[in-house]
Each structure stands twice: as structure tokens, then as C-alpha cells.
Design a binder for these strands. Structure first.
Lengths: 131, 131
DNA sequence: GGAGAATATTCCCGTCAAGGAATATTTTAA
DNA sequence: TTAAAATATTCCTTGACGGGAATATTCTCC
């Protein structure tokens, strides 16, 4: 069961300073998803595209807030829009999730290797102290 | 290539209201990781356990800030501590990443199915308008 | 016990995002 | 062209978090 503390998300400037440091994953996706309403929107869109009004209805959100959250998701490439008459139909884009997936995959691999070699580290520490 | 916008992270209260809605993944992990310095710490710990001082050195952070970030990561079960004399050795815990992994996996599955049936949705919309 | 190293905590401040309310924009239909 | 529906945008306020600085705590060693 994952947990996710809710602290202030860093500003756009802070983020852009980081970009490129983490291969395949810059952090805007995580930040966008760490807002509960946006995560709920994303979960909702798993079942297929929806209009703004439908999303607002199903989540009990007001329309302006829904539009704002969708803008954030859209700016980050998490969703895309298709205009259809008066309505805007939002759907998920798979790319961010694929990137997130491959990041975690590589993560898991390294973690597995390094999992229980705390003992090794302790010996390292002792060696350093001798010198 | 993932993106991650940086907006305010929701408060702890907001998060606890969401808990359980997303099976296996509540959002505190994402929120904790969406802070650049904390993400850097996590990336650093991929290579093995480190003390607070070492983390601060390698990332160019001050010690108090480093401790604060580590506390957030610790409170969220992303890292665990082992006391060793004066020092505290921090290492990653695999569970949050496994949970995040399985969430994305299930996500990918559903997205694959629903990927390109926007046409179906448009037909649905038209049917609704007739009634 | 006292000094000093390593780490944690507290306080204050500035910033920035999320919500509310109102308004603007776009589109269709009559 | 007006009206009305659907959506986007703006302005304002509030609250929370991250950084800085200082201090507290914990531990070891003499």
C-alpha cells in the first residue's frame, strides 16, 4: 500500500532546473498526479474519454476547477483534448505512463541487486574510519 | 519522456480523505517524490544506503534540509533508518515502488484496451442526444 | 562530565498553488 | 442576432511547504 504525503509541490522554475537529471522521468508527471482531484480524474479516464461536464459530475467538482485541473494535466501531456461541438473530450495519453513504468522498472532492478547489502556498507564505513 | 508540472501539493488532510480510493496506491508516495530534492535523494539511494551527511554532501544540500526531506521520505515509508553510532543510515524500502509498479501495470492494461475507441464514445454521445 | 561530531527540531518568512466567485469565450440552435 | 449550454479564464484569498538560521538532541571519546 503506497502512501503519499501532501506537501507543497515545487514551482515550475524549480522543476525546470531539474530536468534531465532523471533519465526518462522528469518530475512534472509525478507532481501533476500527486494532486488528489487530478489523480481521480486520471483514474476516471481509465475507463474511456469523458467531457469536462461528465468529469465534474462524477467527481463532484465545480466546472472551473475541473477545467483548471484538466489544463494542468494537458500541459503535462497526461491527457489530450478533442473538440466536439461545444464540448471538449479529454482522454489519457499513454506516453507519460510508459515513461513512468520504465523508470520504475529500472528502479526495481537496481533495488533488487542492492537490497540487503547493508552489511557491506557498514564495512565500508569502518574502512573509511581507519584511513 | 515524462513531464511533471510543479504545483502545490495537497495537504495531509486532503490526502487522508482520498486514502483507499485508489487500490494499492494512495497518493502520498507521489507527492513525496514530486519534490526535486527528495527525488534526487531517492535516486542517490538507488546505489546503496547513505548517511545524512553523505547525502547532503553529494547533493549540495544543507544538513537540516536534508534531514527534513529524509523525514518526509521516512514518514511515507519510502526510506528506512538504521542508527549506527552518531550516524543515521538511510536506505530505500522496496514496498512503495512495488505498489507504484503494480498500479502502473494495471493502468497500462486498461489503457491498452481502451486506447483507440474514441469513435465508440462519439457514437455514445450521439445516442444520448437523441434521447 | 565536557567537547565535539552527526543529526534532528523549531521558528520565521516568502512563495505559490488550489478553491471560490465572477466573467469571458465558444458553439449551437432558433 | 439572441439565448443558452459548455467550457475556459481571471482575480482574489488562504494555507501549506520549503529554505534559512539558530538551537536542541544524541552519541562517542577523552
Amino acid at each position: 500500500m503506497m502512501q503519499l504525503l501532501f506537501y507543497r509541490r515545487p514551482s515550475l522554475d524549480e522543476v525546470s532546473n531539474m530536468s534531465g537529471k532523471i533519465p526518462g522521468v522528469n518530475m512534472t508527471t509525478l507532481s501533476a498526479l500527486s494532486e488528489p482531484n487530478r489523480m481521480n480524474i486520471v483514474e476516471l479516464l481509465r475507463d474511456g474519454p469523458l467531457t469536462v461536464g461528465e468529469i465534474a459530475d462524477k467527481l463532484g467538482l465545480r466546472q472551473p476547477q475541473t477545467s483548471k485541473h484538466l489544463k494542468v494535466l494537458s500541459d503535462n501531456g497526461i491527457v489530450e483534448v478533442q473538440a466536439e461541438a461545444n464540448r471538449r473530450i479529454y482522454k489519457l495519453r499513454p506516453e507519460p505512463f510508459q515513461a513512468l513504468d520504465s523508470w520504475i522498472q529500472s528502479f526495481q532492478r537496481v533495488m533488487q541487486e542492492r537490497f540487503d547489502n547493508l552489511d557491506d556498507y557498514l564495512k565500508e564505513l569502518q574502512n573509511k574510519e581507519k584511513s
